[in-house]
């Protein structure tokens, strides 16, 4: 279990992370979200013991995170962090031995993962000769080569095509099934929504949303009603609780403040012709994120 307890990190007077707390249980995938500069990478560095918190603590199975237990953690940083002038084998031997692994074991696991990601033929190629996608795979292998109990992934899907993204998702799911803890950040909120049970959204180093995704959505209250019918859009906008109407090509999306306003919209739609769709759905994580973080979607 990983426990982040009231962690605060200051750079002089600047507070990079403020009173952050969360817990990750074995077999759980945890999402750490936020805009650029919100404090995600700093939080990962604190988890990895690279930065010492000004306050609070990080416990890994009830023990302080440090170099005595860091071999049980896998870490993949946001940007590609590979030594490009050496071969794939040399690099993974290097990173593996830094995790106190024997050469034979590294070689065995390296062969397995290269085969898993269909890149066996690159084993003795220089890193710089690999495509960006394949470099990303090598970086991912470097994070999992030690079979970690905790996997920290900072933007693991960055720069990947849909096929390789799917492969990464499957691998992360595999790790989850094996009971490992996974904490990751991503700007692709659909992925977060699809396999995270719990999230923390950071803004300026502070958690502004936290908890289980379903609960976060419930707490958000705002709903979307998708309608297919002959409607008067101007009238629709005047119904109490409706704050936005979007005319899509195939349907009309009506945003309402809470479920208390569903009946009002429904009463009007009932009176219209050719009604083929009336579907109420919770706000997506993306909507919640944009709404709460301040409409900076393009930065995300």
């Amino acid at each position: 279990m990983l426990k982040v307890n009231n962690v605060e990190l200051k750079y002089g007077n600047f507070v990079a992370v403020k009173n952050l707390s969360f817990t990750i249980k074995p077999g759980e995938i945890f999402g750490l979200l936020g805009t650029n500069g919100a404090g995600k990478t700093t939080t990962f560095r604190v988890i990895m013991g690279l930065l010492e918190p000004s306050k609070g603590e990080v416990l890994f199975f009830d023990d302080q995170v440090g170099y005595h237990n860091v071999d049980e953690i896998g870490y993949m940083i946001e940007e590609r962090s590979l030594l490009t002038k050496i071969t794939v084998k040399e690099l993974l031997m290097y990173f593996g031995q830094l995790k106190s692994m024997d050469k034979e074991l590294i070689n065995e696991r390296l062969d397995y993962w290269l085969d898993y990601f269909n890149i066996t033929e690159y084993k003795n190629k220089l890193i710089k000769e690999l495509s960006k996608g394949n470099q990303q795979k090598i970086q991912f292998i470097s994070a999992i080569i030690n079979d970690p109990k905790l996997l920290v992934l900072d933007e693991p899907f960055s720069g990947l095509d849909p096929i390789n993204t799917d492969l990464f998702v499957k691998t992360i799911r595999k790790f989850q099934e094996e009971g490992k803890m996974i904490v990751f950040s991503s700007h692709q909120l659909d992925h977060v929504e699809s396999f995270c049970e719990r999230i923390v959204v950071l803004e300026k180093g502070q958690a502004i949303i936290e908890g289980e995704i379903n609960q976060v959505k419930k707490d958000f209250k705002k709903l979307t009603i998708n309608i297919k019918a002959n409607l008067d859009l101007d009238y629709l906008k005047t119904i109490p609780g409706v704050y936005k109407v979007i005319n899509n090509s195939d349907k009309i999306s009506v945003k309402i403040e809470s479920e208390a306003y569903i009946d009002g919209v429904f009463e009007y739609v009932k009176s219209c012709d050719n009604v083929t769709l009336f579907d109420v759905e919770q706000a997506s994580l993306s909507e919640i994120f944009i709404e709460r973080v301040g409409g900076k979607r393009e930065e995300v």
Partner: peptide, 8 residues
Amino acid sequence: AIETIIAS
């Protein structure tokens, strides 16, 4: 790569 190294 230093970040991965210093993490170990």
